[in-house]
Design a protein around this nucleic acid. Structure first.
Lengths: 252, 252
DNA sequence: TAAGATTTGTTCGTATGTATC
DNA sequence: GGATACATACGAACAAATCTT
């Protein structure tokens, strides 16, 4: 038969073995996103397995974001770069089964975001700074009701996610973006006040505006301090509103 | 036909639609890991789709770690808790396509691990403290050669991963464990010195031992400071050895 | 130990859908 | 619009694993 580890003793199933073989093959060949993989017919010949088995293997890889398939002439399977959104979804699956509290998330944010802000001081272009200013425009006026306040909160999370994307530290950027995604999609507020808290709104907006200035001026220490205050304030706000993390999957 | 969104306009393929439907179903029913899912025959009836299509859907879920299947009587598909190792692998797939440097990883470790150490001060049981002491025993003597030095380094990463697992903050624990995994599996040292650096060995071991004491005594500030020094030292060590992150997939 | 029952795993042949030329 | 090339989907049969008796 093939040189693949057989399914003897019941362990690995055939599609899994094929998927791993293809994975290894991509690494060995150093294939890049967009590169062609062999078509179904070719894989059937090489592995000496049926069409169904090969297709199941491709589904395993597709779920991980490692391949994308296209129909039609010139179609087939291609190496696919694992996107940020997909990686976020897959990781969220893990935390679905863990108990995660708002405090857990903010413990990480408070540790990471000030450090990231400091590292970005003086590194942003005017265009990037302008984009950040533009985001803050979405909440430049105090919210009129609870619903609007929630919308502003979501928008302010976009500020953080975007800022993280400007970092050239891919690990830091992913984690911060992931946490912002969780807070945006999986958070429910048990006590959203009918009367929005204008005091906290003013304070939060002030933080972000002065943060942008500090980043522009290359004031790393100031940026770090402002971000720390901002994070502490955001955590208090979430605690006030008795926010909790919901248990559901993030849509891909 | 079925009530599922059809494949019209070419978007979602049928197995993907089925997989999403099952995912939603698990959330709605509040199913827990180990709970039974409908068998193949049942799913074929419900979705009015062929066996092959249903099986491809199950492979999509299997790749995400959300279901496991068993053959034989009493077998079938079950809700599977997404394990830490699998989540790490899936996330590593994402970073495979990003450029990640040792400095990027350490920027996160330096921000997170001291905070985690502080939060664990006074919270560990004697058994947990003993386990940490046991891990340090693996490098209680200076390394004789470069290979042994690398083994000690890997073991000291186990110290950090295990410490993170003692945290009740699942987010913090996962991130720290993930970074330790990356450093263990994907790091290559370009200049592993023929002569192991006894100075740094002594310093590193001292850090971990005094960290254990600080944790036992509930000295949060001390634990945080020691961990910060320890992280800075580890980063310098990696820089000295010109360590780099390799590009390959982590085996599942 | 052995036989039977149950459920997933795998194959093959055929037909359909979709995108490119 | 027709031909082509590819993935997508179906159905029936058989194989393998594993639990029960």
């Amino acid at each position: 038969m093939s040189d693949l580890p057989k399914t003897r003793s019941g362990r690995r199933t055939r599609p899994v073995a094929v998927a791993e073989a293809i994975k290894d093959w991509v690494v060995e060949k150093g294939l890049q996103p967009g590169d062609r993989l062999p078509g179904e017919a070719e894989l059937i010949r090489r592995f000496e397995m049926s069409k169904g088995t090969i297709r199941e293997a491709m589904r395993l890889l597709q779920a991980q974001g490692l391949v994308v398939t296209k129909t039609g002439p010139g179609g087939g399977s291609f190496v696919g770069e694992v996107g940020r959104e997909r990686a976020q979804s897959l990781l969220a699956n893990y935390f679905y089964f863990q108990s995660v509290s708002i405090d857990d998330i903010y413990a990480v944010r408070i540790a990471l975001e000030p450090a990231m802000a400091a590292s970005l001081a003086g590194k942003l272009t005017e265009a990037q700074l302008d984009e950040l200013r533009g985001i803050t425009a979405a909440y430049s006026e105090p919210a009129q009701d609870a619903e609007e306040e929630r919308a502003q909160h979501v928008n302010s999370l976009i500020f953080h996610a975007r800022l993280a994307e400007f970092s050239d530290n891919a690990v830091m950027a992913f984690i911060i973006g992931f946490l912002a995604q969780i807070l945006t999609d999986l958070t429910v507020y048990n006590r959203l006040y009918a009367e929005p808290n204008h005091e906290l709104w003013r304070e939060g907006l002030g933080h972000q505006l002065s943060l942008i200035e500090a980043l522009r001026d290359g004031a790393a220490g100031a940026a770090e301090g402002i971000m720390r205050e901002h994070m502490e304030m955001a955590r208090r706000l979430m605690q006030d509103q008795e926010a909790v993390v919901m248990k559901r999957f993030i849509a891909e």
